[in-house]
């Protein structure tokens, strides 16, 4: 594991975390009719350089320490905030990912942004760069322990094995039309990956894709195999069968296209979503098929994206 992984996680978190999760929710605001002169004590006591102006629940502007200083220079401390505030306010929404906020701070150079609820338009918080750093650190702290264990355990197997190239192969036989055991291979693979300590997100993606692939073998073919190769940085699963093959792969990949018989649909499958689910869950999917010969489906999952 290089230093890059840590940075990558912070980047990832900035997409996962929402502005609403890291913002400060107790917001000091002023009303449009407040005197500019009153801001002095407010700014001083709260160590602020600006504050939102709110009428009722509605954000109507923002007033900064610069506005205050200009006002002071003009000798108009009795003037209402309304006259001196900036009305066109740049805002963030609580449901936006933190990464949007980071970009906005970069671009605009402001110290803080008011945060609105997208549905109601009400002011629900305020966000400073400090809030983002605090939020990221808190989340990292929570993640850290779990993350380390997963990384360690999964890479550990390979560190203990001395070879130029190592891969662990797990092989599962899949019987066609055997609905009682359909999914047993995907289930066993999921359990194994979990015991080996892979990250839950990776396990989940592998589980979904292999389960769909296994259902395809059970539904359409007399028998097949699932071969999972675990490499230090990726997992490749091959689902191969000697079934009837797929006549038109392009069509088979269209979501909703299905040739499954009615009884398969009764089991909750066969709606033509299998291959698109596999495509979505894996990092790479290669499907090869020959009519009358069989099908070869390869799915690749990278461990550290």
């Amino acid at each position: 594991m290089g230093k890059d992984d840590g940075f990558g996680r912070v980047q990832e978190l900035s997409y996962e975390l929402k502005v609403g999760e890291v913002m400060t929710t107790t917001v000091i605001t002023v009303a449009p009719d407040n005197r500019v002169g009153d801001l002095r004590e407010l700014f001083r006591a709260n160590k602020m350089s600006g504050t939102p102006v709110v009428a009722g629940d509605r954000l109507v502007g923002i007033i900064s320490i610069e506005d205050f200083i200009k006002c002071l220079a003009d000798g108009e401390m009795d003037c209402p905030v309304r006259m001196r505030m900036t009305e066109k306010v740049e805002v963030l929404y609580a449901d936006e990912p933190v990464v949007h906020a980071i970009h906005k701070f970069d671009r605009r150079g402001f110290g803080r942004f008011p945060v609105l609820d997208r549905k109601t338009g009400h002011l629900v918080g305020i966000l400073s760069k400090g809030d983002i750093i605090k939020g990221l650190l808190k989340k990292l702290e929570i993640d850290y322990h779990e993350e380390e264990i997963h990384h360690y355990r999964a890479s550990h197997i390979f560190e203990d094995i001395l070879a130029d190239k190592t891969a662990i192969r797990l092989k599962y036989d899949v019987r066609g039309k055997d609905f009682e055991n359909a999914g047993a291979s995907a289930s066993a693979l999921k359990k194994t990956l979990s015991r080996l300590g892979f990250h839950p997100q990776v396990i989940r993606r592998v589980a979904i894709a292999t389960y769909e692939a296994e259902m395809n073998i059970v539904v359409f073919t007399p028998k097949g195999q699932m071969l999972a190769d675990i490499h230090p940085d990726h997992i490749e699963v091959k689902a191969v069968d000697k079934g009837p093959g797929i006549p038109d792969i392009e069509r088979a990949l269209v979501p909703g296209f299905s040739t499954a018989p009615e009884w398969v649909r009764e089991l909750g499958f066969g709606a033509g979503m299998g291959l698109s689910n596999i495509q979505k869950s894996s990092d790479k999917m290669v499907l090869k098929s020959k009519v009358g010969k069989g099908t070869d489906l390869r799915m690749t999952f990278f461990l550290y994206r």
Partner: peptide, 8 residues
Amino acid sequence: DLMSDVLA
């Protein structure tokens, strides 16, 4: 009722 939707 569609298990593929559940998975997705």
